[in-house]
Write a protein that binds this DNA or RNA. Structure first.
Length: 275
DNA sequence: ATGGCCTTTATCAAAGGA
């Protein structure tokens, strides 16, 4: 099973790129963020013509998340339970034995901003919810735009970004606390190129100079991590005309999503395992 | 990196993103 996440920064603008990407990559599930579309304006027929079902949760102008999948999902959820939040940032569904949760974490704007406090509050609510879900679902994938670069190696210039939003210590601590519930950052299960990022500012020729941050993540429950055979960032999309400022991240999972859990047979790793 | 761009909505710029 192939699962991907991509902050498209307007699906209206990026729809042709998304359709091309689906055709070329054939993911089982593609999670989108920043669709910026109300549900009644979602391009359902174009997505269906590409062979994909849609579960969307959007609003006008800002935010908006969606799940595109080959098979229908069930137990659809939107928003964090118990968090009163009008912003459309969460959508989830179950595919086979896999619980998928697509998130668009608030940006935070600046560490002195009220939006930063909202971001931290939102992350605390997310943590509580993930804790619940891990008790219910052996196979959980939490993926999307986290708007947090977890470690120094995830930032092109850690000194420059020190204390700044996206890399401040409270945000990184919140990210770490979510991992400590029992999730694994799939990207770090494998050897990766140096200076791997998922977002580059539109300004200052940042992509050409690789001045980026790794802020889009695919986190896996420990049971699911055993089945993960690769995790890659698809930088090629950032070179297209009118690109999103984010690149997709893609994981391959064996067994998950198709049938009931298998026995505990050893699963060979396809891409280079670390250690 | 002083900022530099892109998207949306609604004007004759402003807000938000990261």
């Amino acid at each position: 099973m192939k699962i991907a996440t991509w902050n498209v920064n307007s699906l209206k603008v990026r729809l042709p790129q998304v359709l091309d990407w689906l055709a070329a990559n054939q993911p089982d599930v593609l999670c989108l963020q920043e669709t910026k579309l109300q549900d009644e304006n979602f391009p359902l027929s174009e997505i269906a013509a590409a062979g994909y079902q849609t579960i969307c949760c959007g609003q006008k102008t800002y935010n908006g998340v969606a799940l595109l999948s080959k098979q229908p999902g069930c137990e659809i959820i939107s928003g964090i339970p118990g968090l009163d939040d009008p912003q459309k940032r969460v959508v989830g569904a179950i595919y086979g034995d896999l619980r998928v949760v697509c998130i668009y974490v608030p940006n935070g704007e600046h560490v002195t901003s009220g939006k930063y406090q909202y971001k931290l509050k939102w992350l605390a609510a997310l943590r509580e919810w993930v804790c619940d879900m891990l008790g219910k679902h052996q196979k959980l994938v939490l993926l999307g735009d986290f708007n947090i670069a977890p470690e120094e190696r995830d930032v092109h210039d850690a000194k420059l970004w020190e204390g700044q939003v996206l890399f401040s210590l409270p945000e990184r601590e919140a990210f770490r606390e979510i991992l400590e519930l029992g999730l694994v950052d799939s990207f770090r299960l494998f050897e990766q190129p140096e200076k791997s990022y998922t977002w580059w500012d539109y300004r200052m020729m940042a992509f050409r100079r690789n001045l980026g941050l790794r802020i889009d993540h695919i986190l896996l429950s420990s049971q699911l991590a055993k089945e993960c055979t690769s995790c890659v960032i698809d930088k090629a999309t950032r070179k297209l005309d009118r690109p999103s400022d984010h690149a997709p991240v893609v994981v391959e999972l064996q067994n998950a999503g198709t049938s009931p859990p298998h026995g505990s047979s050893e699963i060979p790793l396809i891409t280079k395992p670390r250690d």
